[in-house]
Amino acid sequence: MLWCDQAMFGQGTYELSADLKIEAGKVTAVIGPSGSGKSTLLGGIAGFHPQHSGRVLWKDADITLLPPQNRPVSMLFQDNNLFPHLTVMQNVGLAVSSRLRLTVPQRDRVNAILDRVGLGGLGDRLPAALSGGQQSRAALARALLQDREIMLMDEPFSALGPGLKAEMLDLSVELAKAAGRTVIMVTHDPADAARVADAVIGVAPGIAFAPAVTSQFLRDPPEAFKDYLG
């Protein structure tokens, strides 16, 4: 369980309070109007934003003071998930080694994960030689290869067309679940949440609410989200 214990996350002059528990091994969607602080919540959990008060615990261990690289968290960003000057193999390989020359066993692991996301044989290409969907797959492959229990997704597929976006979302959730990951994904589309999420965290300006079961949240949203969900 990921527990934000009366946490206040800051980003510049903006503050978001979060006092909530997220179940391990489940998919939790974060929904709210733009500018309400969805990304701040993810950035706070990942350790990118300063935490002004409260604690964050993962499986009863306090991770509040850990820097991003030491948290049990992998992240798919909204954009710039791949280094444009590194090949797909090197980009994905960074999950296992910060040396750009991988050992043979490391290469095998990267190739295996590339096969699983459908990028088999494309390891030597630069990101610019991939389609948008393929770039997303490469980023997903790296997040899966990182041995971290929590996977955060900050709308990484928002630049893709609707069909491709749904396909990537399904693939991500399927592979993450198979790997036993806890997924927390930002979305502004209730349909995304309905498709894949077990629970929904509503974020209104300045506050992130405790997760509610998806079907219940969408059927009978809290007052603050009625206008947003329509």
Partner: peptide
């Protein structure tokens, strides 16, 4: 563009 990504990868 890449600071956070680098950090999350432990670079």
């Amino acid at each position: 563009d890449f600071g956070k990504l680098g950090q999350s990868l432990g670079l």
